[in-house]
Amino acid sequence: MLSAKLMITLGIGLSIYFILILVFLKHRALDLRYTLLWIFSGIVMAVMVFFPYIFRAFIRLLGITSTMNGLFVFFIGMLMIICMSLTSIVSRQAGKLRTLTQELACLEKRIRELEEKKQED
């Protein structure tokens, strides 16, 4: 059972979380595309904090008896999903960087050859 005090604390924490996301988005320090998962997580957390009955029913379904244990399991799971999505983004960026580097090197070779040809002419 979440106490009223804990609910208020989590509510304040969530507000800071959403404000931080908005500030980052405003200053374009975060790409909206990559923020969607964070926003989604925030919404899920808000539902859990303000409608604890839904959360309790859910963790009972999973066979977890303590609410706090359920909270930990849920948040760790969510953080793992976010980490995985970050790794996937980094991998994709690395692939793009590799392609760019290769194309750049080929272009540099072409320019070098054209310059040499021009000098010969």
Partner: peptide, 21 residues
């Protein structure tokens, strides 16, 4: 005859540059 990669991509990236070329 050479292409110069501006950063080190490792053997796989280097070979792939050759295939791309």
């Amino acid at each position: 005859c050479a292409v110069h990669l501006p950063i080190n991509l490792g053997i796989g990236g280097a070979v792939q540059t050759g295939y791309r070329y």
